[in-house]
Simulated assay, not measured.
Amino acid sequence: MQVQVRGQGARRWITFGAIAFGALFLVVGLVLAGVSVAFLADAERAQGTVVSLEWRSDHSSASRKKRTDDKPVAYPVVEYTSAQGTPRTFRSSTGSNPPSYEVGERVEVLYRADSPDEARINGFASLWLLPLIFGGIGLVIAGIGTAVALAGRRRS
């Protein structure tokens, strides 16, 4: 009998942890989506041109050994002219391999009038990828935790 109680207690904590972890990720996804919506509400629009691709191998730790499957990622460098007539250049914070954009390609740039250096390409990845990843992972994990909790309640 004592083994079952310990097992149920551990199962409850794991279920609660999954729901809490999923809810946290879901909240982060919603906050990131809110940031994108707020940015879109205040953003000025301009036409820009991809002037180069900055290839980088991103590594989170200098001590990590280079793996053979690590591929460099291309970050587009975009040039545009703000509404004040000032030419601006920025590197997108979203990179990919293969590259999403080609040198010379025209793109729509979104920027804030009060800080035109904080610009983004008007594209799905730069606006919605992170909110969808965090929100999706959170929804799946919280959903699984909730389903396990409901199934456990029905058994008892």
Results as ranks from 00 to 15, higher is better:
Ser126Phe: 07
Lys66Met: 11
Gly138Pro: 00
Phe90Asn: 03
Gly34Phe: 14
Pro76Asn: 07
Ser92Val: 01
Leu30His: 12
Val103Thr: 08
Gly48Tyr: 03
Gln2Lys: 11
Gly29Asp: 02
Asp114Pro: 03
Val109Leu: 11
Glu108Gln: 12
Glu118Ser: 10
Ile121Cys: 04
Ser52Arg: 14
Asn122Pro: 00
Asp117Gln: 12
Glu79Tyr: 05
Ile137Phe: 10
Thr49Trp: 13
Leu40Lys: 13
Trp128Val: 04
Pro76Ser: 05
Val3Ile: 13
Arg91Ser: 06
Leu24His: 07
Val78Gly: 00
Arg88Asp: 04
Val5Arg: 12
Val51Thr: 11
Glu79Thr: 06
Leu132Tyr: 11
Arg112Lys: 14
Trp128Pro: 03
Ser93Glu: 04
Ser96Asn: 11
Val109Gly: 02
Ser63Glu: 10
Val77Glu: 03
Pro87Phe: 14
Leu26Gln: 02
Gly135Trp: 06
Val78Cys: 03
Gly17Trp: 15
Arg12Phe: 15
Leu26Arg: 01
Asp42Leu: 13
Ser36Pro: 03
Pro98Cys: 10
Leu26Ala: 05
Ile14Trp: 15
Arg155Cys: 02
Ser92Phe: 04
Ser52Lys: 11
Asp114Met: 08
Asp58Gln: 14
Pro76Tyr: 07
Ser115Val: 14
Ser93Leu: 13
Ser96Met: 11
Ala119Arg: 02
Ser96Thr: 14
Val103Gln: 06
Arg88Ser: 04
Phe90Tyr: 10
Ser63Ile: 12
Val148Glu: 00
Val37Ser: 03
Pro87Ala: 09
Asp70Ala: 05
Pro131Glu: 07
Ser96Cys: 10
Gly85Arg: 06
Arg153Lys: 15
Ala125Trp: 11
Ser60Thr: 13
Leu127Asn: 00
Ala151Gly: 08
Arg64His: 14
Arg12Gln: 10
Ser57Asn: 11
Asp58Trp: 15
Ile19His: 08
Ser36Phe: 10
Pro76Lys: 04
Gly85Ser: 04
Glu102Gly: 03
Ile144Leu: 10
Arg56Trp: 15
Ser115Trp: 14
Gly9Glu: 14
Val109Trp: 05
Ala113Phe: 14
Gly104Thr: 07
Thr81Asn: 04
Gly135His: 06
Val103Cys: 03
Gly48Cys: 06
Gly17Gln: 06
Glu105Val: 07
Leu150Thr: 09
Lys71Phe: 13
Ser96Gln: 11
Ile121Asp: 01
Arg6Gln: 06
Asp70Asn: 06
Thr89Arg: 07
Ile133Phe: 12
Ser100Met: 08
Ile141Tyr: 00
Arg67Met: 10
Val37Phe: 12
Ile141Arg: 00
Ile137Ser: 01
Arg91His: 09
Arg67Asp: 08
Ala10Asp: 06
Pro76Leu: 05
Asp42Tyr: 13
Arg120Gln: 09
Phe21Pro: 01
Gln2Arg: 13
Val50Ser: 02
Val73Met: 04
Gly48Pro: 02
Phe124Leu: 09
Phe25Arg: 01
Arg106Pro: 02
Leu150Val: 14
Arg64Ile: 14
Tyr101Thr: 03
Gln84Pro: 08
Val77Gly: 00
Tyr75Asp: 00
Leu24Pro: 00
Gly9Asn: 13
Arg45Lys: 12
Thr94Pro: 02
Ala83Gly: 04
Ala125Gln: 10
Ala74Ile: 00
Ala74Trp: 02
Val50Arg: 03
Glu44Met: 12
Val5Leu: 12
Leu40Phe: 15
Val140Ile: 14
Pro116Ala: 03
His59Glu: 06
Gly143Cys: 02
Glu118His: 13
Thr81Pro: 08
Phe25Val: 01
Ala125Met: 10
